[in-house]
Amino acid sequence: MMKDSKISSLTRPRVAFALYVIIPIFAFFVIIRVFPILGTLFLGFFDWGLISPTKPFIGFENYTALFNDSLFIIALRNTGVLAFLSVIITMAGAFGLALILNRKKTIFADIYKLIYFVPFVISWVPLSVIWKWMYDPSYGVLNYVVGLVGIPPQGWLVNPKLSLYSVIILIVWRSVGFNTILFSVGLKNIPSEYLEAGRIDGAESIPLFRYITLPLLKPIILYILIMTSIINFGIFSPVYILTVGSQGAPGNAVRVLVYDIYENAFRYLHMGYAAAESTILLILVVFLTLIEFKLIKPEA
């Protein structure tokens, strides 16, 4: 009893200190994250025009209207295609690059990693402007390159059949380097003893990869998969910049959910409608994250 109370009196200041440190951060998190999310959920049930004098409660009307809204359906479909292809291509590309760069015989591996990483540190706006120039139909470097092999000039951004893929190329190009670094870290952390033990037991490259490398990389794969999915479902800046102006992509061909939310909220001032859209996006991302967790559950 004496001993318990002594431990308790020693622990109490530490607990208090921990609370003092955690509470402001937690409060900050609640204010800037939780409240806006709850506010958005709340707004979705109202006909909330930003400057309209009345903001009546309309229940699920915004949600039923959304599923009859062709632009929302287009945005949903485009977001799905964009996120799915970006995630798959980014992960495959990054993993392949990481495997090559982690081979012992690859020289200048660190320099390559640095080069691949550079696009990730440039913010979306200048990057998108640069790519808009690269996609330019008259003077863009891409048309010059395809012209070298006899392909006629393409309207990369203005052709609706190409424009969504042009955005995907940009997204993959920006994120593949960062994910290569993450995969490289994961590969480096696999103890070489496991691979050596496998080799001693006579395992070939493919079984080694299948039964040792891949299972041990699961936490990294899961992290990259979830983060890339979340980021790509919320993509906005490149789409916005690539569609601006007379050389821009046709809005509907690259319309993604966040672009549609932006347009409804800040151009048409339909805040309630945009909030309902945001709620659907939230549910979609949470649902996909749970599926990804379920599919690639790291072993304990």
Partner: peptide, 15 residues
């Protein structure tokens, strides 16, 4: 291939 347009129309872009 068109190398100079007779008139430049606004055919694309969002907004």
């Amino acid at each position: 291939n068109l190398t100079r347009s007779g008139i430049s129309l606004r055919l694309s872009g969002a907004g």
